[in-house]
């Protein structure tokens, strides 16, 4: 017999527990038109409170003075002064250049490694080569590693006295003496880029492998019958199918690279000198070490504008939105 929960609500039996009664009342509401919105309400309120409000007040903060170490200054409105100071701050200019190198080179290296590994894994899985299913899991591991641990692992391996990589490179003959990779302004940024590539290329592998496995086999078979070689097959079948996800992953990864200073914080702290100083780290240090919140907010706003400009231009140029 079909049950009707609505009967339970107004049955009036006094021994119905409050919990059941509340449940029935929500069940009643779930039949109304506003249910879809009510379900969304908690998340929307939370996002409003912990995301929109902070971002909004962060932007406003960039036009104000706010130093936790100088409460006597108060938080007066100072217009564009932080931005003018930024313009004449040499560290800001270095950070700007470094951020561009860091994000572009890093994302490119991760993309190339991710694409090649995904193509190899896809072929291996397709040809049922041994160990490929395990390899697919193992290759993803660096991506779930915490940046603190990743940083320490590589700091140990690249250490100027105890580093296994130094030892191996000297043995092979590529180096004639141990290098202090993170202490030399010439090698510090490339060294951190290697670490970041290790940690993030699996992100691309993950998505490209999934996309590759979604391409129907008969497309390749037809191309093979027509005599198209591997390169032509890649050029005319694989790549066009991958383009939308390539654009999406590159945008996401660029955002990640520009926004996250974790690795640099653990490995170099921006040094030596300012050789590895990037905007996100600069802003974090201004806030965390100097408690100059207004200035740090201004740096963050510049970062956000750069990211927005990049995303809009990149998505336009790649033309994925046309379809």
């Amino acid at each position: 017999m079909p049950m009707d929960p609505r009967k339970g609500v107004f049955a009036g039996d006094s021994n119905t527990s409050i919990l059941v009664r509340a449940g029935s009342r929500i069940a009643l509401i779930s039949e109304t038109h506003s249910w879809a919105y009510l379900l969304l309400l908690p998340s929307f309120l939370l996002v409003l409170a912990v995301l929109i409000y902070p971002v909004g007040s962060g932007i406003l903060l960039s036009f104000r003075e706010m130093r936790l170490t100088r409460p006597d200054l108060g938080t007066p409105f100072i217009g564009l002064r932080h931005y003018r100071e930024l313009w004449s701050d040499p560290v800001f200019h270095i950070s700007l250049v470094n951020t561009t190198i860091w994000a572009l080179v890093g994302t490119t290296a991760q993309f190339v490694c991710g694409l090649i590994s995904a193509l190899a894994l896809n072929r291996g899985l397709h040809r049922l080569l041994p160990g490929m299913r395990l390899a697919r899991v193992l290759i993803l591991l660096p991506w779930v590693m915490p940046s603190v641990v990743a940083g320490h692992m590589w700091a140990l391996m690249l250490d100027s006295r105890l580093g296994v990589i130094n030892d191996m490179l000297v043995r092979v003959g590529l180096l004639d003496r141990y290098m202090a990779f993170f202490a030399d302004p010439q090698t510090a940024l490339p060294a951190v880029l290697v670490v970041s590539t290790w940690g993030a290329f699996p992100f691309f592998t993950l998505f490209y492998l999934a996309a590759l496995q979604g391409i129907p086999d008969d497309l390749y078979e037809a191309a093979g019958v027509d005599g198209a070689g591997l390169w032509l097959q890649f050029r005319h079948i694989t790549w066009p199918m991958l383009v939308p996800i390539v654009v999406a992953t590159i945008v996401l990864r660029m955002i990640g690279m520009v926004n996250a200073p974790d690795l640099l914080l653990v490995l170099t702290g921006g040094g030596p000198g300012h050789a590895t100083q990037v905007l996100s780290l600069f802003a974090f240090q201004k806030a965390y070490a100097e408690f100059d919140f207004g200035y740090a907010a201004a740096v963050s706003v510049v970062m956000m504008l750069m990211l927005m400009a990049f995303t809009v231009v990149y998505v336009r140029i790649s033309g994925v939105t046309k379809e």
């Binding site: 912990v50 806030a287 919140f293 963050s300 990211l307």
Partner: peptide, 13 residues
């Protein structure tokens, strides 16, 4: 909203 810099949120938070 993933595009918002983490640092920009950290300060007001």
């Amino acid at each position: 909203i993933r595009m918002f810099p983490v640092v920009l949120m950290i300060i007001p938070l």
